[in-house]
């Protein structure tokens, strides 16, 4: 019961983990390569969301220092890290898609199972 109460307080953790599992499951079980790449992005985004959520402080403002008054601001570090993470995810996606284009050109399919069948026929 206590655990459920804690989860209800931190519902965004649960949301991130559900997204992560959806991504991981799709990535490993679906045979369509484009779907795999989309799932990879869902998985990465879920981690990014979790990371940014960690840095949120209730009632916090953007972390820009103003000279006037003391204020509560959100933790800027996760945001900075996630910008880097997004760049990494974009480059991996671009690279994966470029491989898929090549595979489509040489095999004529973007489906892993069909690819496997073609290989075994050779």
């Amino acid at each position: 019961m206590e655990t459920i109460g804690k989860l209800a307080d931190n519902y965004f953790y649960l949301a991130a983990v559900i997204l992560f599992v959806i991504g991981a499951h799709t990535m490993l079980t679906h045979s369509n390569m484009i779907k795999k790449v989309i799932a990879m992005n869902i998985m990465d985004s879920s981690v990014f969301l979790l990371f940014v959520a960690i840095g949120y402080v209730k009632g916090g403002q953007a972390p820009i220092i103003r000279e006037t008054a003391e204020m509560v601001y959100v933790n800027p570090l996760p945001g900075a890290l996630i910008v880097t993470g997004i760049v990494v995810a974009v480059s991996v996606t671009a690279y994966a898609l470029s491989i898929i284009v090549r595979i489509q050109k040489s095999f004529g399919t973007v489906d892993c199972d069909e690819l496997c069948d073609m290989r075994s026929e050779d």
């Binding site: 991504g23 795999k36 990879m40 998985m43 991996v92 491989i99």
Partner: peptide, 16 residues
Amino acid sequence: LEAGFNYLILSAMGSG
């Protein structure tokens, strides 16, 4: 190409 793609996907899984 096929081996590289599989490697990339599982590697992305590990990074995630």
